[in-house]
């Protein structure tokens, strides 16, 4: 049952990801990307990470994609011919195939699959997924967390400076 759901969602995810690049209308591409994000959220739920699922939808589908759609609509980017990106498509296909090969090698090698860490289903059930993420983020991974937040702050300040610059 779970495997069936996995493949069904995977099909939708891959198809919508394909249509992100294939759609002529940029708004449709953006909506396809939202579908891909929703599929990823389903995977988070299946991996017993409901907090990540909710954040995935809230942040990516609910905020970042809305901003992207806003920019698309504001600049009124209508249809885009596909000939413009032919080189990009060839490179992306090659790169994607390479990533696929590497992933296949890892899975076949058995070094990344079937690993059991300290966080099991029982721990998630007893302790709560949100609590686990919060504890990990503010103790063990505090430094990367702070570095990421400073990076984002720099990006925000940079964006403000660039947009306020006298032309």
């Amino acid at each position: 049952m779970e495997a069936l759901l996995f493949y069904l969602v995977a099909l939708v995810a891959v198809l919508s990801a394909f249509f992100v690049t294939k759609c002529r209308n940029t708004v449709n591409s953006a909506l396809c990307l939202v579908t891909t994000f929703l599929c990823l959220a389903v995977y988070y739920v299946m991996l017993e990470a409901p907090f990540m699922a909710a954040i995935q939808i809230m942040v990516y589908a609910g905020a970042i994609m809305v901003l992207i759609v806003f920019v698309i609509m504001l600049l009124n980017i209508g249809s885009v011919g596909k000939s413009v990106y032919r080189h990009g498509l060839i490179w992306a296909t090659g790169l994607g195939f390479l990533i696929f090969l590497i992933a296949a090698k890892f899975i076949a090698g058995g070094t990344v699959t079937k690993k059991v860490g300290t966080v099991t289903s029982e721990v998630v059930k007893d302790y709560g997924h949100t609590e686990l993420i919060g504890t990990a983020m503010f103790t063990e991974f505090l430094l990367p967390f702070e570095i990421a937040s400073i990076l984002l702050l720099v990006a925000i300040v940079g964006a403000v400076i660039l947009s306020k610059r006298k032309v």
Binding site: L31, P50, F51, A54, A61, G62, V66, V69, H129
Partner: peptide, 25 residues
Amino acid sequence: DLNIGVLYILAMAGLGVYGIVLAGV
């Protein structure tokens, strides 16, 4: 009773905007 109930609602509220965007476009 989801243990992330409120976040679920916020996530759904965030998705509602696509209806308006799509209608507009």
